[in-house]
Design a binder for these strands. Structure first.
Length: 108
RNA sequence: AGAGCAAAUCAGACAACUGCGGGCAGAAGCCGUAAGGCUCUGCAUGAGGAAAGUCCGGGCAUCACAGAGCAGGGUGCCGGGUAACUCCCGGUGGAGGAAACUCUAAGGAAAGUGCAACAGAAAAUAACCGCCGAUAUAUUUCGGUAAGGAUGAAAAGGCGAGGUAAGAGCUCACCGCGAUUCGGGAGAUCGAAUUGGCGUGUAAACCCCAUCUGAUGCAACACCCACAAAGACUAUGGCUUGCUCGGCUGUCAGUGGGUGGCUUGAGGUAUAUAGAAAUAUAUAUCCUAGAUAGAUAGUUGUCUAAUACAGAACCCGGCUUAUAGAUUUGCUUUUAUU
RNA sequence: AGGGGCAUAGUCAAGCGGCAAGACAACGGACUUUGACUCCGUCAUUCGUUGGUUCGAAUCCAACUGUCCCUG
């Protein structure tokens, strides 16, 4: 997957300075990256589950992002942190939470 | 039909659309100082039986070579297999089960040291009570004695007879144990005979004996590009393994990015041969993930018992642990009927 | 990915084969008109779990579970 947030300092900047929205399944951070495209970063901590479970959550978040990718305004770094409830979430739950965050943030 | 034992296989399938990873082919562009990378189209392809735990073994790489000794560590019935093994196969002894069968860290306690709480006379050079003899005399001293005695996990081979002052493997029969010889076996060991007269347990306590072992792990290591180019210590040094020897030599110290290492391998499948088996050999055939913040997802339909445990990260061989279910083969035993 | 440690009462902990110390907390009692302080007493039936060695295991061995740390 191209255009992802990789550096640790970018994540730390998002947690400290970025805007934040919280749902049952996700925590959604974003900030202006002064470029002409969007970047996605996903955090799933080890306390949520084993490797299979964490990989599934990452795929669902990535699928939700790619479904809404073209509707978003450009020029933001987006960090999505999975919460413990997301371990048993379906795709629809994740997509709904993602839509809610987008609407709240005004990225659309 | 019930109960059980052993071995093996599978780990959802098919179709459509959208999307992702690397590979091959093609096409023009774009980004970057450079090494190099990105975009588009087509084709086929893309997680496991444990990928897990990291408990062992090996490959591979670096340390000049991988050398010697000590220390430290591993292993420990016998034979075979293997690249190697704390693995596998077959056997011996022991334990469990009615049986099929299962389990087994199983060398040495007579090389030495240590430990055995409490209880008990005594826990390893056994004399408190008792028994017997002598002395002495009114219950004192000396000696003999392991048959009997509370305790304890364990009490000086067991049990019976003879024997004796009382006793005792002191003697004998049977049983147990050790040694020697003979026979079977490749060996562990088994059987028989002769002989000894036999002081407990613990080595997953130290240890002894035999045998194996250099250290560090792919974020190893090799190479490329850009920037920086100023330093520190220098043979009485530095590196090499914990130490000693031996050996080598100027050594140490940056930042950011990229490429290789990276998947054809002690490989898989089928057949044949050798073998009791593990396994080996030969022939044919196949190529089947290789990412680097890390690729398998979403939607829909059909079938189905299939909703479990669970995600490759240098690669192999094992072991251990987790696991819904489904299927097959062989065997034991109980009951009923013929 | 590689390597190392820890687990004992509600909490902090000692213990290195033979009775599981101690402190705080909690509870009960004494002192006091009452409370605090102080004093006395009680509190581990299975030492993370499961096996093994041993007469005997918190301790030794093996396999698991949880948790913490180190290298980068």
């Amino acid at each position: 997957m191209k255009n992802t947030v990789k550096l640790n300092r970018e994540f730390r900047y998002a947690y400290r300075k970025g805007k934040k929205f919280v749902t049952d399944y996700l925590v959604f951070y974003f900030y202006d990256n002064r470029q002409s495209l969007n970047k996605l970063g996903i955090t799933v901590s080890a306390s949520i589950g084993k490797a299979v479970c964490r990989n599934r959550i990452k795929r669902l978040i990535r699928a939700a992002y790619s479904a809404r990718k073209d509707e978003l305004n450009k020029g933001y770094n987006i960090i999505v942190v999975a919460r413990n409830k997301a371990a048993n979430a379906s795709y629809e739950d994740i997509l709904k939470a993602f839509d809610y965050c987008i609407r709240k943030s005004g990225l659309k």
